[in-house]
Design a protein around this nucleic acid. Structure first.
Lengths: 198, 198, 198, 198
DNA sequence: GATGAATGAGTATTCATTCAT
DNA sequence: GATGAATGAATACTCATTCAT
């Protein structure tokens, strides 16, 4: 039976590693720095994680599963379908903004981690959004086939355009237009997005 | 005036480095391996390149400029505008396919290089395609504003979907639909793409 | 009085350690691997053994004492003295052959353990064989002084030549000849050995 | 063209490593200690040797080849054949005695290196001594077949008995007797050995 | 233009052992 | 008897970069 004590320590370690990976990049964060920060011995670190790589995976797992949780809660909320779509999408990167480190994933030392995270987010988010869009179709808000593929492509653009923060008003307009047309919505259905992004 | 002899050697080195970066990944290719492969001394390498990072930049420069050349040739060709778009897009990754290493950029050890290349390709291709689309608009084939942003988003999807090679027929259909709607083209305008991708 | 339960577990551990030391070498076998294989906790291991080194000693003790038992049984058997000598010598490495891992002790990772075992075997076997040879002398089969030293040297050759398994027919012939002459036996006394080794 | 400078440095390193391996044992000598002793950077060490293991091999090579040189010189010396045998055998471990570290190879931390050295010495010495014994046969001093195998077994005993230094007078007597009988020499032929070992 | 010897900071990982519960 | 979390010293190896010749 795994002790609770160990599990708690592991969680702590995970949070520290998460923050450091984000702040300095995975490659630039050495095990020595992690254990110094955590105030533990090297052996303790390796007691909890088999390798640095495994720690990265665990960090991403933790992050994604927390976000997926939030995203699923959004679904059952009684808000209009278009808003749901945006809410689910948004729920996938709140922590970064909380911690005031939005944009850090874009730094070149974080590319590898960013890619891993984005792929995992796609895996998790596509099925959720597919459900939401289908709900929209049944309500006559959207009208399209191949929902999954459409959702995937919209998300890809989202990640690429909005992760970096270096987008402009025209980017947003085009994104709204593409989303509406891709999902077969009436013009204006998604235009509330413009308000969300000052 | 730099000697021709030195320039020739530099080009050779660049090609060797290019091949090795692609095959093994940038991080996994050590300078020792490059000079062994090239049969030169370490000092000679550093005579030509100030750093490994600079070599990567030079490699990407070389690749991109060759491809941009090809892309520009396509523009002045008397083929229909929709075909031009595809031709320009395609002209940006022929070398990989030539060398039978398509898909290698997807490997995780190549993420960093891949990202750099993709960003550079966007920089180079967006203005070219913007011109082509504007040509299409003047011919009444397309109808849209914010051309540059639309082109960028279409290219982003292109890179993400088609680089990996793991797309299916529905992906292609959705991509065609999105492209037509995004550019304000009649349905069917871009459907010839389906034939190109068996 | 130590509990029987604990003793039983210790024996099991010993057998597991023995097998792993033989298969992978002492240095290459970590305590973690032993306890994983045994399905016990690390503390339990250290409850039974003060150190890894002590485990090795215990393993060797166990092995040697089992073999010494067998060797002593041979002595009191009513077979001719020359055969007794061979039987005693042979009784010192049956387990290896049983378990189909003859030759493993030769692998370089096992040198240390092998040396320890060989020294212990010498310690145990020399006095036994000395008795046997003296019996042979009293029967007029052998004729020599300094019996103990002669026995030791014959055993040394035995270990070196036959442990590796890479000996040839001429090695055997020379070994027989040396043994006979060293012990002052008539030519042919030990030639039955040739039959034993196909 | 390999520079002489590098070769000289490599030789120096080899000597330092040799001494440290002998004094402290191979396993107990860390790379850090070697480079500190040599006053060089870690990179320099790894410029000259691909690994610690390779250094050990090079050390043994150096030692053996120097000794083999000496042994071959002995052969062409106009001394009696029995003396030649002893001289060749002795020439294989003079450095140890010079450096006052005879017996160190016996320490358990040196077992691995000792075994490697002994095997190499056998490889080198057996053919040389075989020639010498054949010379003795042609002079009527020895009388035996399977010379190579006999020489090998005598050397094995030599290594085991005399390396440790813990032998007694009776061991020497038995060794002399075995050698004479094994090679088919008259009693007394090798008895001069007794004088050599006080 | 070219060489290659020298650098040294940087890094992940291993593992026997301890001890409070 | 048994557990398992914690320890921390030890260690081999990598590699981009420099510079005297």
């Amino acid at each position: 039976m795994k002790g609770e004590k160990g599990e708690r320590r592991k969680k702590e370690l995970l949070k520290i590693a998460y923050r450091m990976f984000i702040e300095k990049g995975y490659d630039n964060t050495s095990i020595d720095e992690i254990i110094t920060e955590a105030g533990i011995a090297k052996g303790t670190y390796y007691y909890h994680f088999p390798s640095k790589e495994a720690t990265l995976e665990a960090v991403i797992d933790m992050m994604i599963s927390e976000e997926a949780e939030r995203a699923k809660n959004v679904i059952s909320t009684p808000i209009p379908v278009p808003q749901k779509i945006v809410a689910v999408t948004m729920s996938m990167r709140p922590q970064l903004e909380e911690s005031g480190i939005a944009g850090t994933l874009e730094r070149s030392e974080n590319i590898v981690m960013h890619e891993k995270i984005n792929l995992r987010i796609l895996d998790v988010t596509v099925p959720i959004l597919t459900e939401v869009v289908k709900e929209g179709i049944s309500q006559g808000i959207f009208d399209c086939t191949n929902v999954e593929e459409r959702v995937k492509m919209i998300l890809i653009i989202c990640q690429r355009i909005f992760d970096s923060g270096s987008f402009n008003e025209r980017d947003v307009e085009v994104f709204i237009d593409m989303t509406e047309k891709t999902l077969g919505a009436k013009t204006g259905t998604m235009s509330f997005i413009k308000e969300l992004i000052h």
